[in-house]
Simulated assay, not measured.
Amino acid sequence: MLLPHGTVFALVDGRNFELYRNSGTEAEPQLDPLPVPELEVTNFSAGMRRNDVNLPHTSRTGDGSNDSFDESAHAIAAADWLNHQVLQHKIEKLVIIADPRSLGEMRKRYHKQLEGVLLKELAKTMAGRPTAEIVSALKG
């Protein structure tokens, strides 16, 4: 896959959010890191199943089950930030790489304009990986 010059790459997993821009050519991408914004993680009810609503508060905390809510909220916050950037015309070409669960949460939040600039999605955990490995995963 050709990755146009200027394309923004968003890597998301349950806890991390990384941004890169292709400063190279379509055939020879060079991913340069971009500053990562402070996400406003406010939607902690994301992904909550109906039967969880009636559980006492203590049943949902302290045992790690709360982590899935935090991870969903993180993915939603990343999608909301990306939507805002696209709507402000700060991102014109976008690739999203996220673990399958985060990608599923994010897809629910995509604005139509984000869908219009989205070149590719990859359901894979790549946050923290070297940029050459990221490019290789996209080409594979």
Rank of each mutant, 00 (worst) to 15 (best):
V8N: 12
F17H: 03
K120C: 09
Q113H: 13
G116T: 07
L2W: 14
S59G: 05
S45P: 00
K108T: 09
T61I: 12
Y110L: 14
E28Q: 14
R49G: 03
H5P: 08
T25N: 05
H5K: 13
A46W: 02
D52R: 01
S65R: 09
A98G: 09
N22H: 12
L55A: 13
V8M: 09
T42W: 05
V36S: 14
A123L: 06
D32W: 10
S45E: 13
E71V: 02
N54E: 15
H84T: 15
P4K: 14
G140Q: 15
Q88M: 09
G24I: 10
A137Y: 08
R101G: 03
V12D: 06
N51P: 08
R21H: 09
P35T: 08
E121S: 12
T42G: 15
M126K: 11
P130L: 14
R101A: 11
A75W: 01
R50Q: 15
G128M: 04
L34F: 03
D13M: 01
R109M: 02
M1Y: 11
I76D: 05
V12T: 06
F17P: 01
R107S: 07
A98K: 04
E105M: 12
K112N: 08
K120F: 10
A79K: 03
N83K: 08
L82F: 07
R107M: 10
E121G: 06
K90L: 13
A77R: 00
K90Q: 15
K124T: 07
D32T: 11
E92M: 14
A78W: 03
D80P: 08
A137C: 09
L55T: 01
Q88N: 08
P33H: 09
A78T: 02
V12G: 06
F69M: 02
A77H: 03
N66K: 05
F69H: 07
